[in-house]
Design a protein around this nucleic acid. Structure first.
Length: 202
DNA sequence: GAGCTGATTGTCT
DNA sequence: GACAATCAGCTCG
């Protein structure tokens, strides 16, 4: 029986949580069906100073409220009018740190079958199922009904212990050209050589 | 493989 | 009314 990661893991700096989530196992349960995925790519968003973060300036709106809670809960939002993105909140209440889950790797045949239930693709490459934040939310059937829920206990979505990746690559974040000096911060992490990573370092 | 573009809607000003 | 932490499909080569 694998251990669920407890809340204290998340009550730390968002950068550390982003890096340490690599190799951990994201578990998705729907109607008794269980699928496991290895987290292979993440990005840290460190409001209130980070101009790339939804929580920049400490701005609280109905949408961003989960970011200001204690770490260990989800933050799911709609982007570009059609895709959902999954984040896990880090740090303590009122310190708006969060970690965007950008890519995961299906860990077994059941996880692959699970993906194909919710995401139908023309591509024959398995990595196209989950190699991006919008894609993995489709494949794992994640939407706003899973917003602001704890990932620290068994339920629809939670995180278990995993492996320790051999090598971690650190790079700039993706698609935040508007973030001025924060655009070039190397706050993206991924597992070196993993084919499910969305964008590889140049 | 790289580069461009349209799709589509919740959210905030 | 503007825009977004994206993706699929297209062109070129």
């Amino acid at each position: 029986m694998t251990k669920i990661i407890e809340q204290k893991f998340y009550l730390r700096d968002g950068l550390k949580v982003a890096r340490d989530l690599l190799g951990k196992v994201l578990v998705r349960e729907i109607e008794g069906r269980v699928a496991r995925f290895r987290i292979v790519e993440t990005e840290a968003y460190l409001g209130p100073e980070d101009k790339g973060a939804h929580s920049y300036g400490g701005k609280r709106t109905p949408r961003t409220m989960p970011i200001f809670e204690d770490g260990g809960i989800t933050y799911v939002y709609l982007i570009y009018g059609m895709y959902n993105c999954l984040n896990i909140i880090a740090n303590y209440k009122d310190i708006p740190h969060c970690v965007l889950i950008r890519a995961v790797e299906p860990l077994d045949e059941e996880a692959l079958a699970f993906c194909r239930t919710y995401r139908h693709i023309k591509s024959k490459k398995v990595q196209d199922l989950t190699n991006g934040p919008g894609k993995l939310c489709q494949a794992l059937h994640i939407d706003k009904t899973l917003n602001a829920l704890p990932v620290t206990k068994k339920g629809q979505l939670y995180v278990e212990e995993g492996d320790t990746p051999l090598n971690i690559v650190r790079d700039k974040r993706i698609n935040i050209d508007y973030a001025e000096e924060y655009r070039d911060k190397e706050w993206r992490f991924y597992i070196e050589g993993n084919k499910f990573v969305s964008v590889f370092k140049k």
